[in-house]
Design a protein around this nucleic acid. Sequence first.
RNA 1: CGGGGUGUAGCGUAGCCCGGUAUCGCGUCUGCUUUGGGAGCAGAAGGUCGUAGGUUCGAAUCCUGCCACCCCGACCA
Length: 492
Amino acid sequence: MSEFKKVNRSENYSEWYNYIVDAAELAQHSAVKGCMVIKPYGYAIWEKMQADLDKRFKATGHSNAYFPLFIPKSLFEAEEKNAEGFAKECAVVTHYRLKADPDNKGKLIVDPEAKLTEELVVRPTSEAIIWNTYRGWIQSYRDLPILINQWANVVRWEMRTRLFLRTAEFLWQEGHTAHATKDEAIAETTQMLKVYASFAEDIMAMPVIQGIKTANERFAGADETFCIEAMMQDGKALQAGTSHFLGQNFAKAFDVKFTGKDGKQDYVWATSWGVSTRLMGALIMTHSDDEGLVLPPKLAPIQVVIVPIFRSEEDFLAIQEKANNIKSELEAKGVSVKFDGRDTLKPGFKFAEWELKGVPVRLALGMRDIQNNTIEIARRDTKEKTSTSMDTVVDDVMTLLTDIQNNLYQRALDFRTAKTKVVNSKEEFLKVMDEGGFAMAHWDGSSESEEKIKEEYKATIRCIPLNNPQESGTCFFTGNTSKERVVFARAY
RNA sequence: CGGGGUGUAGCGUAGCCCGGUAUCGCGUCUGCUUUGGGAGCAGAAGGUCGUAGGUUCGAAUCCUGCCACCCCGACCA
């Protein structure tokens, strides 16, 4: 008997998470502290995310470009709040050469002669280098807007890392736009928030709350930070994407002015927005179960796997032929199909393995099916199995893929709804935090009470939802007057 | 960065207290038999015991430093 490690999601959520990442071959730890290797299967999912997002960015008028990994310290520190916010987690390059160690043959040391005259910060984000560049690109309102995105890696020296959720180096995209007016920049910020929200919901099948961050949670250097927040299966919140209205802060720090129609000079208005490989963690923690990864069809590198069940070589060849017909028909409809013809493994093993990898639909085809003109069709999300006619299987699969995509979203939404509680007292609040979930509670709007709540309950305000209903009430924590409820949760 | 734990073959482990170069399962390879939910038998290969030192005739085992990972904190866009 093979020994398969079983990890229960309900028993130990983080152990379960690590198990999924490992067993589904998404990523692994590397020889570099805090840095991960994204394995081919995991990277294939990220590539599908990238492809879809990139299309959305282009459709909203953005172009891709690339800026340097290294940022001279003097540029980095130009926007003070931003620099301060990131200072504690910056990797810094101080030298540009190694040399043979005179005292230790075969070893290298940093050449003390090769000290840089100015240290280079490895980008934790690229506002500084980009706005320094934009200065040279912008003179007139005719040069605006500038709508640029870059796909890049960034480094934030985190103390405690978790695969995909928080690593020292991660992959992301960062959009950086420049506008002539404040209104236009705000419109851009909200537009990109909507892009992220619809990507999360339509592609990842992950419901999100769109909202505004409080001052405490705001991006360093931004006037306003918008975000999408998702609920994981343990009831904790995960910030899945952010879109920042940067005001004129970077324009002032980097002296980026333009001449308007009226001939007057003004500072440029800015936005930036990003999502990262953290979305991989969000994806895992939104849908997966004790049998392994569960992928929404729109992100699955393999959407359908066909497992042949055979005794003899002749059987196998007959089944393979049928399977390949189905495969071609599905592929013609844009579905990615894998025929698992490995002859050393039993079907049951293959079933379990593809379930572990989250393949949405499995077809099993044996001689019995061929005689009856049937095929077994199984869905990963509910693990239901049925037999269908070979004549309708292609249509059935197409329908099922749509069903699974919708079902995953609905299931996640129902879960979030059930775990979101309206809370009016400290007791209720604590109960929700301990059980996991979102607490919709009145808050008096002060940073001080926000801090104290964080200290006492380890909970933060995830966001103030957009179009938040206004209702007068009293802050559950201080009893002060409040005009709206905000979303509280413990967070990743 | 603090507290606790772990590190032995690709994976999971026994051995460690009480020193004598390593156990078992899975996987891998070969052969035969199997195949509708994680196959069986037979044979084989595979290990600087995380790493660097120290103690010792002898170290997986004892001591020290370092590294990595896990859990809990601190930190965190």
